[in-house]
Design a protein around this nucleic acid. Structure first.
Lengths: 227, 227
DNA sequence: GCTCGAAGTATTGTAAACAATAATTGTTGA
DNA sequence: TCAACAATTATTGTTTACAATACTTCGAGC
C-alpha cells in the first residue's frame, strides 16, 4: 500500500488476483514457489513475498511447511465475505451519495461500465461479465478517494469470485447488472436511505442465488494459468 | 490470516502493533531491519516478512531502498481512516444488534471493559485508557464472528492510535468511554437506527476533538521500545 | 562560513545455499 | 490386493552472501 515505487512482489499479487478474477486459478489449487519462480522469472524469495501478502488477505491459505493453496471459501466463509462487503460497500455508497450531491463525483465512467455490462449480458459473454462486475464494485470504492476503504475491500473481491466459482450456477445472473443500474440511480437521486437499501438488497440477492448444496471439488493443476 | 500454525513473522507484526498502541513507537520513526534483527533474535528476512505485512496494511510506510517508517497520518489520511472505520464499524454494530436480539451475543466481557474504562478515566490513567479503548473497538468487531471484518478493521486501529498521538490533545477525552457505554445501550435496546447513529456520532466526535493545527514533529530513535 | 560534490558507509533488494518438514514412492508382510 | 512402514523426493523455513541503492561524511572551492 502506498509505496512510492512499485516493488517486485506487486507483480505476483496482481497476476494472481487477475488469474482468480479470470477464473484461471480455481479454488483449492496448490501453488508451489519454485513452479511460479519459473513462471515469473523472479527468484523464490520474491514469489514468497507476494504469497505472504495474499495469505494475509485471505486469498491464499497457508499451513506451515505446506504449499499455499488458493482459498476455497466454505458456505460460512462465503456468508462472512458478503457480510463484510455489505458493511464496507454500504459505507462506500453513502460516501458517493454525499459526493455526488456536492458535485464532487463524476459518474460517466461508472455509467459506461454498467452499459458495457448490459451489452455483455445480452451477448452472453459471461466470463467477461463477471470480470467487469468485479471491476464495477472496485471502481465504486475507488471513487470515494479513500485508500483505506479500497484496501479493505480489495481482497474481498477475489474471495467473492472464488466463492462464486464454487457455488454459483453459471446460468443464473449472479451479480445482476440491473441492480448495478439501480445503485447508480440511487446515488443520483441523492437519497442515502434508498442507496443503502439498494446495496443491501443487491448483496442479499447475490448470496441467495448461490447454491451451497454443491459438492466442492478441488483441481490441482495450474499450468499456463498466467498467460 | 488463518494460518493453521503461527509463523515467525506474526511475532514481528504483533510486537509492532503493540508498541504502537502503547505509544512506544511514534509516527514517522525509522525502523531498520538489522537493528530489529538484534531486538528480536530472528534473522533479517523474518523481520522483512513482518515489515512487508505491516506495509501492506498501511501501518508502516516503505519507499524503495529506504528504511520503513512508522506511518504518520496527515489530516486527510486521518479523516479517511475514520471514514473507513465508520463504514466498517457501523456494519459491526448492526450485526451485533441482530445477534443480541437473537440471544447469540454475550455482552458481559464488553460491559466489563467499559467499566474498566470508566475506572481508568476516573483515576486518570490515560495511557492505559487509550489502550483499552482500542481493545474495546476490536472486541466489538471480534464479537461478530467474521474474520474478514476483523481483518479489515485491524490495521485501522493502530493507524488511529498514530493519528491520535499526532493530533490529539492529551487532556481531551478523545475516544469517550461514555459514548462506548451508549453504544452498548443501543445494542441492548435492539434499535439498529439508534445504534448506527451512536457509532457515527462517536467517530464524528473523535475527529472533531483532534487538533489538526499542530506542527508534526518526527522522532527518530527507537531504542528499548519493545520491552 | 557555506555550498557543492565525491568517496565511503550503511541499509535495502535479490538471489542462492542449507536445514527442516511434509509428500511421495517403494517395499514388505499378511 | 491391501495396509503399514521405511526410504526417497520435493517443498518450504531460514540463514547467509552479494549487488544495488541511499545516506553520511569529508574536503575543495568559492
Amino acid at each position: 500500500m502506498s509505496t512510492t515505487l512499485r516493488t517486485s512482489s506487486d507483480d505476483v499479487v496482481e497476476v494472481i488476483f487477475e488469474a482468480i478474477l479470470k477464473k484461471r486459478l480455481n479454488p483449492g489449487v496448490k501453488l508451489s514457489e519454485i513452479s511460479l519462480q519459473e513462471e515469473f522469472g523472479y527468484s523464490r524469495s520474491v514469489i514468497r513475498q507476494g504469497f505472504d501478502r495474499l495469505v494475509d488477505s485471505g486469498v491464499l491459505i497457508h499451513k506451515k511447511n505446506q504449499s499455499v493453496r488458493v482459498a476455497c471459501p466454505t458456505e460460512l466463509e462465503t456468508r462472512q465475505i458478503y457480510e463484510a462487503r455489505k458493511a464496507i460497500e454500504t459505507g462506500v455508497i453513502l460516501i458517493l451519495v454525499e459526493k455526488y450531491h456536492n458535485k464532487q463525483l463524476d459518474l460517466t465512467e461508472i455509467d459506461s461500465m454498467v452499459s458495457e455490462e448490459k451489452r455483455l449480458h445480452d451477448s452472453a459473454k459471461l466470463a467477461k461479465l463477471t470480470r467487469l462486475s468485479c471491476d464495477f464494485h472496485l471502481t465504486l470504492a475507488e471513487s470515494c478517494d479513500n485508500k483505506y476503504l479500497v484496501e479493505s475491500l480489495k481482497p474481498l473481491i477475489p474471495l467473492s469470485a472464488l466463492a462464486a466459482s464454487v457455488y454459483a450456477d453459471p446460468e443464473s445472473n449472479f451479480c445482476s447488472f440491473a441492480e448495478h443500474q439501480e445503485l447508480i440511480e440511487a446515488i443520483k437521486s441523492n437519497n442515502p436511505k434508498k442507496a443503502s437499501e439498494a446495496i443491501n438488497i443487491h448483496f442479499d440477492h447475490c448470496v441467495q442465488s448461490l447454491n451451497f448444496g454443491v459438492q466442492v471439488k478441488t483441481k490441482n493443476s495450474y499450468s499456463h494459468i498466467f498467460n
